[in-house]
């Protein structure tokens, strides 16, 4: 006598038994696949990371070297020498502007004479010209240039003002904060300078700012 219900149960058990090894093999294969994909992807990420980390390391090394050289220079000269590389660009801009103007003038001159007159302006005139341009375009590079020029000329009030203006436009320019702090020191506001530098270092972790702070605090920079 057939017992279909029991037979169906036995059949179901048989199918489970039959497919279990296949399911296990499939599961293992999938897991191996996922694992191998994961391994390959992590390896790729590591290989991609490696050069950048190397670069970062080399950058760090360079920065450390710079710090060492700068600190050694600072030890020798006591005062900081900010980079004025961008000035050449600004100068070029000024020259280009001048050339344009000269070109316009040239035509007039050509009619009169064939000689070109180059008029050398004084530093004060330069500054007033840059100020004029800064008022037009509000470029922080120009305001920084002005601040630096005023600092060089010993007009610390003006350099302070222009550095402050620069910081207000763009608060991430290292040189501007340095000129600002230096100007404060020169204006006998050493405590304020230290406070500003500390805040800035906390924000930017600038090595140059650190050096300057150390110099100010040690009294090397007055």
């Amino acid at each position: 006598m057939l017992n279909i219900n029991e037979l169906e149960t036995r059949w179901r058990k048989h199918k489970i038994k039959e497919y279990t090894p296949l399911a296990v093999i499939a599961l293992i294969t999938v897991l191996i696949g996922i694992f191998s994909i994961y391994v390959v992807s992590t390896q790729q990420v590591e290989t991609q990371k490696e050069p950048s980390t190397l670069k970062a390391d080399s950058k760090q090394e360079e920065e450390q070297k710079k710090e060492i050289t700068q600190s050694s220079k600072a030890l020798k000269k006591v005062t900081l020498a900010p980079s004025f590389k961008f000035i050449s660009n600004i100068d070029n801009d000024i020259e280009l502007d001048k050339k344009k103007e000269e070109k316009v003038k040239k035509k007039k001159y050509v009619e009169k004479t064939n000689t070109i007159l180059i008029k050398r302006q004084s530093t004060q005139e330069d500054i007033s010209y840059v100020i004029k341009r800064f008022k037009n375009n509000n470029d922080p590079a120009l305001s920084l240039f002005i601040a630096k020029k005023y600092y060089e000329l010993g007009e610390y009030d003006s350099s302070y003002n222009y550095a402050l203006t620069t910081n207000q436009i763009d608060d991430s320019i290292d040189d501007s904060w340095l000129i600002f702090s230096k100007s404060l020191v020169k204006l006998n506001r050493k405590k304020e300078a230290i406070k500003v530098l500390k805040k800035y270092i906390k924000h930017s972790n600038s090595s140059q700012a650190k050096l300057l702070l150390r110099d100010i605090m040690s009294g090397k920079f007055r």
Partner: peptide
């Protein structure tokens, strides 16, 4: 095929 297998079990 299910009944063929059931028959084989039986």
């Amino acid at each position: 095929s299910k009944i063929i297998e059931m028959s084989a079990i039986q």
